[in-house]
């Protein structure tokens, strides 16, 4: 475990809590893309199937359970989740690897409906932009984590993860710029 990865995972977890806090505070999910939330749900379900096949560490298992559980409560896709689990559960180990790759690719683009929604309306409230920043920060730090692990360990992260992770972080680039130049100075998130 290195500091980049730990902070990245905590940002990822934090992003979900920010989203829940926002829905509670404003009692509304306006400005949050349902498509993105549904895609993220699919991302978690297809990737963390490995919960049943391999054990890495308690940290790893607990975090995967957190992401699955919180995401389920978040968008109330319990029924869809159960159906997906039922469909995929009987599959063998190799299928899990294929689904893992699918999940990685899907995650890279899952934020796009949300970003498109913000491009269309040209603005987002501050809590929503904190949420997206936490997600983007998690992805960006994972890249640093991979570089760190490349030099500190004799194994390397999968090339699928590298390519998709860099594409995904790239999608956040414009958002990061607006976030740093406007939101952190207390202004609204508004596209120029």
């Amino acid at each position: 475990m290195n500091v980049f990865r730990l902070v990245a995972d905590l940002l990822h977890l934090g992003s979900i809590f920010i989203l829940i806090a926002r829905i509670h505070q404003t009692r509304s999910c306006a400005g949050i893309s349902l498509k993105t939330q549904a895609l993220y749900f699919l991302v978690f379900v297809t990737r963390y199937l490995d919960l049943f096949t391999s054990f890495v560490s308690i940290y790893n298992t607990l975090m995967k359970l957190f992401f699955l559980a919180l995401d389920t409560f978040r968008v109330e896709y319990v029924l869809v989740g159960a159906a997906l689990f039922a469909l995929v559960f009987p599959h063998k180990y190799k299928v899990v690897e294929i689904l893992w790759s699918f999940s990685i690719y899907l995650e890279a683009v899952a934020i796009m409906p949300q970003l498109f929604m913000m491009t269309r309306t040209g603005e987002a409230d501050n809590i929503t932009s904190h949420y997206i920043f936490a997600l983007g920060g998690y992805r960006a730090l994972y890249i640093v984590n991979w570089i760190y692990r490349y030099y500190s360990e004799d194994k390397y992260s999968d090339y699928i993860a590298w390519v998709a992770g860099i594409v995904q972080t790239g999608l956040y680039a414009d958002f990061f710029y607006v976030y740093f130049t406007r939101v952190l100075k207390g202004k609204e998130f508004k596209l120029p």
Binding site: N60, W100, Y156
Partner: peptide, 10 residues
């Protein structure tokens, strides 16, 4: 150098 198993990260 080998690829790390995919289940290690989140």
């Amino acid at each position: 150098r080998q690829a790390r198993q995919t289940h290690d990260e989140l």
